[in-house]
Amino acid sequence: MKKNYWATKKDKAFYFIPDISGFSQFVENTAIEHSIHIISELLDILLDNNVLNMELAEIEGDALFMYIDKDISFVQIENQVSSMLNAFQEHLKKYEHQRICNCGACATAINLKIKFLVHKGRLDFIRVKNIKKPYGQDVNRIHRLLKNDVPLDEYLLLSNPTLEYLEIDAEGAEFIKIESKYDIHILPYYYKALTTYKTTTERAESKDIIQIKEKADFTIEQDIKLPVERVFELISNFKYRKLWDTSLTEIEYDEGRVNRPGANHTCIIGSRKMQFKTI
């Protein structure tokens, strides 16, 4: 059996964690399924706004663990935080104005929050077979800082080594210092609210919300003897379509996304394919 071995670099890296929070524990099946889809979409959006091209070390539940071994400035870190934050919030607006599902996850998605943590430390790796991951004291340190005493839901947190390395004037940059006890160690860190990184945009009406004023080309009618909430789920959730539409041979759609206005799907009836958009 091959033993684990270390590939150690003396250089230091910036460790970066965007962490999403705010989902309650759901017991209803649709809410659990949709909460997974929503978090998946949001993590995709965060990665799409990784303007510093940081390496993704791991997806950790509702968080991304990332790092970069290049020297970067505080302004660059702020740009990344701003880009991710505003894309994150813009996407959440869709669950406020464009959702068609009323499950617990979709109904409360707008309440999701995000925080960002940055730590400057030594970059060591552990390698097991073909998997290589950052490892060591500084990796432990940024993960410990996820559990902190910051009295806010959304914030940017810098470890003390990060603040010192970047030579940031904490007071001038509106950071507040906290010292928390971790095991037998006292770790100082600094935080600030994300208010300054939010762009103010007017709420736009969705172009995908369409009022139908003329008769449809064809309609499907079914009698379904179930409570109205269950009927709504059967109609709006594509995976249940074949349970009540007996004419349908197959339906193709993105199983990793929640159906909402603008979502596309393909209905296959025999050899015919029909393209649809949810409105």
Rank of each mutant, 00 (worst) to 15 (best):
N50Y: 07
D71Y: 08
C267T: 14
R257W: 00
F88M: 07
E252G: 05
K2R: 15
E90P: 06
K177M: 09
H265V: 12
N148F: 05
I212P: 05
N4I: 15
N148G: 06
T195I: 06
P227K: 08
T266F: 04
K2D: 13
D62P: 11
L187T: 03
D169L: 02
N148H: 06
D71M: 11
L92I: 01
N148E: 05
K133I: 04
E171H: 13
D19G: 04
I131A: 07
P134F: 01
K133F: 04
V128I: 09
V75G: 13
R203H: 12
L163R: 00
Q222A: 08
I45T: 06
N86Q: 10
F88C: 06
N259V: 15
G136A: 00
F238A: 13
N237W: 04
L47C: 03
A173F: 12
L92V: 03
I68E: 03
S73A: 05
A87P: 11
T201N: 12
K120A: 12
S40C: 08
H91M: 10
L152K: 07
S73E: 07
S180C: 02
E60N: 15
I235G: 04
D153M: 11
E28S: 09
E41R: 07
A105P: 06
P188D: 05
L117Y: 03
P227G: 02
L194N: 02
T30A: 14
Y189K: 01
T266I: 15
L152R: 10
T200P: 04
K207L: 12
V51Q: 05
A13T: 01
S159R: 01
H119G: 05
Q222V: 06
I212S: 09
E255C: 08
G256Q: 14
R99H: 13
M54K: 08
K177N: 09
V150I: 15
N160Y: 02
I110A: 13
E202Y: 01
L194E: 01
E202H: 06
D208I: 04
N86I: 04
H34E: 15
L112R: 01
C101P: 10
E60V: 14
K93E: 13
K3N: 03
A31I: 05
K133P: 02
D217V: 04
E255H: 12
I142T: 00
V228N: 10
V128T: 10
S83Q: 04
I220N: 06
Y189D: 02
N4V: 14
K207C: 11
H265P: 09
I17E: 01
I131P: 06
K120H: 14
L194S: 03
Y240P: 01
Y135P: 04
F218R: 02
P18M: 05
M84C: 02
E28Q: 05
S73R: 06
I220R: 10
A193T: 14
Y15H: 02
L226W: 09
K132P: 04
S82T: 13
F74S: 08
D19C: 02
